[in-house]
Simulated assay, not measured.
Amino acid sequence: MNIQTPITETQTLSSFRNEFAAMPRDSAPADKFNPQSILHVLLKIDTSAAPRLRFVALPSVVPDPPGEIESYAKKVAATVAFHSQSTLLPSPFDVLVTQQCWLMVELDRSANWQFTEGELGCTTKGKTSTNNFGLRHAYADGTLGELDEPVTKPGCRVVYFGVARRAAGRPGPGNPGSEFMNFHVQFLADNGERLSVIFDPDIKNEGPSIP
């Protein structure tokens, strides 16, 4: 199978150990998690610079109330081709957060990829903290995985988790409001072979601290 490992211009070698840490089930009581929105991020693959692949994040704030994150995730996962139309300016790779929210990541349906079976779809590069919590996977049959549960079904393209805390941040390198993540995905070939890839977006804050 001749597939290049996707690399983006924003990826760099880290000076610290990647912990591949699982998110805790719950947020810290002191953070008083009160999500203000559901941030739906569609991850697309830009092939315009082929053979080099580039990921593009298309974030949008959806109209569904934050309290309906479970039903929204099931709806998106069970729909053949769905994403919010209220798209904000795309980012090359990273995702900007400005408040406590549910962050849902959907893999573009036009590519043959999925979150890796048997693994968590998303982990953190830093050690486990309550900055992010409550990771769950949503499946095409309209069901949700349990908290802390790895991907158990093929074709998983949707995950979500809570963003509870970020330090005050600023644009540019060395942003203290940055939180580097690992997305664990597989590219699927027609012959059944799979290429597992981990890429590392920054879910970052560039303003006052959250909360």
Rank of each mutant, 00 (worst) to 15 (best):
A189P: 09
Y160H: 12
P171M: 07
E193H: 14
N191K: 11
F161I: 08
R170W: 01
G169E: 05
I198Q: 04
L195Q: 14
M181C: 06
I198H: 06
P171Q: 07
V197F: 01
L195R: 12
P173H: 10
G192S: 10
P171V: 02
R170T: 06
F199L: 07
E179D: 13
I198T: 13
G162F: 09
M181L: 14
F183S: 10
F180E: 11
R166A: 05
R166S: 02
F161A: 10
F199I: 08
P173G: 10
R165M: 11
G172K: 06
R194T: 15
H184Y: 02
N175T: 06
F187R: 08
G172H: 04
G169M: 03
R165E: 08
P171F: 02
V197A: 00
V185Y: 00
R165Q: 15
F199V: 10
G169V: 06
F180P: 10
N175D: 05
N191F: 01
N191A: 12
G174W: 07
G172C: 11
G169L: 04
V158Q: 12
V197I: 11
R166E: 01
G174A: 14
P171Y: 00
R157G: 11
R166V: 00
F187V: 05
V159H: 03
A189S: 15
A189Y: 10
M181G: 09
V158C: 10
C156Y: 03
S178F: 02
N175S: 06
G177C: 03
L188Q: 13
D190P: 13
L195W: 02
R165I: 03
F199C: 07
A167V: 05
V158F: 10
G162T: 09
E179K: 14
I198V: 15
R165D: 11
D190N: 15
P176Y: 01
A167M: 12
E193T: 15
V197Q: 01
F183G: 06
G172P: 04
F199K: 01
G162K: 09
G192K: 05
I198C: 08
E193K: 14
F183Q: 02
N182W: 01
R165F: 15
F187K: 06
A189H: 14
I198M: 06
V185P: 00
A168F: 08
D190S: 15
A164H: 03
F199Q: 01
A168W: 03
F180N: 13
N191V: 03
C156P: 05
F180M: 11
H184D: 04
R157S: 13
Y160N: 05
G162N: 06
G192P: 13
V197M: 00
I198A: 10
F199S: 05
N191P: 12
D190A: 15
F183R: 05
G172Y: 02
P173R: 11
P176D: 05
G169C: 08
G174H: 11
Q186P: 00
G172L: 02
I198Y: 00
Y160F: 15
D190M: 14
